Computed example of a mutant assay.
Amino acid sequence: MFREVTATQVLLAAASPRIQFAEFTADEEKENGADWLWWWVDQDGTCYGLLAQAKILKSRGRHWSIDFTYRTQGDDQTQISKLIRAANRFDVPAAYVLYCGDTQYRATLECDRAHDGVLCRERDHVGVSTVPALVAETAVGLYGRNSGVSAFHDALPVEDLAGPDGQDEPIVPLARGLAEDLSRFLRQPQRGSRRVAKELLRPVQRIRHGQFAEAAVMERAVPITGTLFADIPNDLGHFSVPYLAHMLRGLRHEVPDYVHDVLDGRTPPAWVTDHLGGIVVIPDADAPATAGDRTPHGSVGQLFPGPPEESRPPGGRRPGQAA
């Protein structure tokens, strides 16, 4: 497998121009446990962002792991706690982008749970997946260094998140008395950035239902300007932060100015570039899929493992270059 930085560059080069991205020079992994901001942008300007750290699903014989518990030397904080805290800077949820190889790479991965009758390791498109940091944090608490397989099981293929295939099932929240707009969002099928937010919330909500905690707290979270939902329960459960407020704060009415900068080929301000490895933007996230939306092999998941055929710069652009 590639290292995380190389894997991200190969992914973005292969996905361009369907997606746009700008890579910065800041190395924020040690400080914040964070690499990239990802934004899904709909045609009407509704958008969803998350702060993501790249991780490799690693194999040592029949033992599989993802180093969520990594700590830098002399630091008493795990990278996962830094990532969740760093997401506050941008008022988005924290997540991991996982590079999980192809079915041959995952052949010895053992998970006793299936997906619609398909073995966990044989799912389509999971070579590049994402999992909320709250899900990974819970897996670490339950399984420690063996949390990788559990997190992989709950991870969602990146290319399917906003896809039109299938109908997303309703989410039944533990909290009652939800605002009508939030209740409707959870009950009804969604598209584009709304679909991304709903699908990433789904495994978090599933964990919350299984927690032996008190009834859901009905106290309201402090609203964030510009978010789609202003009235959200501040329920904590056994998570480190209120999960509904954390997962849905990235869903916005309008595209942030620094995302417009990336789309227009401008350099975002220093308060953004100094704290990120880069920004990924998936425009027209709610547009109907076309045959050209996928790689020639049918899935970005087929890009891993294996080095590119020749060494060449990634196909993305640096800040300030034309789109």
Rank of each mutant, 00 (worst) to 15 (best):
E23K: 11
L12D: 09
V128E: 00
L200V: 11
P256R: 02
V140D: 02
C120S: 15
Q20E: 11
K30W: 00
T227K: 01
I224Y: 06
D286G: 14
V262L: 09
T290R: 12
W40C: 07
N88T: 15
A15L: 11
P283F: 06
R18D: 00
R318D: 09
C100E: 04
P157W: 07
R317M: 00
I80V: 09
R106P: 09
Y70D: 07
T108S: 14
L186D: 04
I171V: 10
G163T: 07
Q321E: 15
I171F: 04
L186I: 06
V135Q: 04
G278W: 02
A322G: 05
G192N: 00
E31I: 13
T267V: 08
Q73I: 07
R191H: 09
R184K: 10
T227A: 07
L251H: 04
P170H: 09
A52R: 00
V92L: 08
T25Q: 10
A245M: 06
R208W: 07
A114C: 06
V126M: 10
R266G: 01
D102K: 11
P17M: 10
T108G: 00
V149K: 03
A136Y: 04
A54I: 06
E310P: 00
K58N: 12
Q205D: 05
E31A: 13
P269H: 12
P308M: 06
Y70L: 10
V280C: 04
N234V: 02
I66Q: 04
A270C: 05
I232C: 14
C111W: 02
L236A: 01
L98I: 15
L178K: 03
A270M: 07
G45F: 08
E254C: 13
S65H: 11
R208V: 09
V217K: 06
L174Y: 00
A107F: 00
A133C: 13
P242K: 03
T69C: 14
G45I: 13
V158D: 03
S183A: 15
Y243K: 01
K198H: 08
G141L: 05
Q77K: 15
R60E: 14
P242H: 03
F21S: 14
D35T: 08
A287K: 12
G277M: 06
L134W: 06
G177A: 13
F229P: 06
Q205C: 10
S59T: 11
Y243S: 04
W40Q: 03
V262Y: 08
R206Q: 13
Q9A: 13
T46W: 01
R3L: 14
D261E: 10
Q188Y: 11
H297W: 09
Q20G: 07
E137A: 15
H238D: 07
L12K: 02
L244M: 15
P93E: 03
A7K: 04
R18K: 15
L51A: 11
R85G: 05
Q190E: 14
V255T: 05
R318K: 12
A270N: 05
A54D: 03
V259W: 02
P170F: 03
V272K: 01
V135R: 06
A26W: 08
R194I: 00
E29T: 13
Q321W: 10
P296C: 10
A197E: 01
G320F: 04
H238I: 05
F212M: 09
L276E: 02
L186P: 05
D165N: 07
D165T: 13
R123M: 07
P283D: 09
A14Q: 14
D91T: 11
V140L: 11
L12W: 11
L236W: 00
E31V: 05
D91F: 08
D76N: 12
R187H: 11
E28L: 02
G177E: 08
V222W: 01
